[in-house]
Design a protein around this nucleic acid. Sequence first.
DNA 1: CAACATAGTGCTGTTTATTGCTCTTTTTTT
DNA 2: AAAAAAAGAGCAATAAACAGCACTATGTTG
Lengths: 68, 68
Amino acid sequence: MHFTELIKTIKERREALQVTQDGLAELSGVGLRTLKQFESGKGNPTLLTLRKISDVLGMEICLKIKKM
Amino acid sequence: MHFTELIKTIKERREALQVTQDGLAELSGVGLRTLKQFESGKGNPTLLTLRKISDVLGMEICLKIKKM
DNA sequence: CAACATAGTGCTGTTTATTGCTCTTTTTTT
DNA sequence: AAAAAAAGAGCAATAAACAGCACTATGTTG
């Protein structure tokens, strides 16, 4: 999953749940600024930040072996 | 996937490929110190750092909707 | 169009990840 | 058991993420 896909996934999921950036920021405890940067593709979040966001969206981070 | 599982996955994969921390550090371009910290559970790496590591190990980061 | 909500950006201080160096501890090999 | 390899940890400098604030841009609704 490329970085852009990751962002797209998060963004789409957030919108599917009809949560605003503001709302997600509050719910997750991640700063609004950070969230905005992330979604606009200008961030390099830490795992913790990504996890906080994913949690609220009912998602989880995983690692898979790439298929060839 | 919890943080500890993530680490475990990386570590096991590295060992399965018979790569040392040193080797992985060189191959991935991530500092050895960072890698050590991460594997010993004391890090909060950025997505980029995790991606560099995963890449070399033939793995990819993904986001999934949690099953209930 | 006007008003409003939502998203994106510049600036900036604070916090923290990254990194190299060196040393200690643990594990593996001979 | 001794030597060698690999892993973990303290210290410190640098780079970058985090966060708030204020402002702009975009999009939506009346």
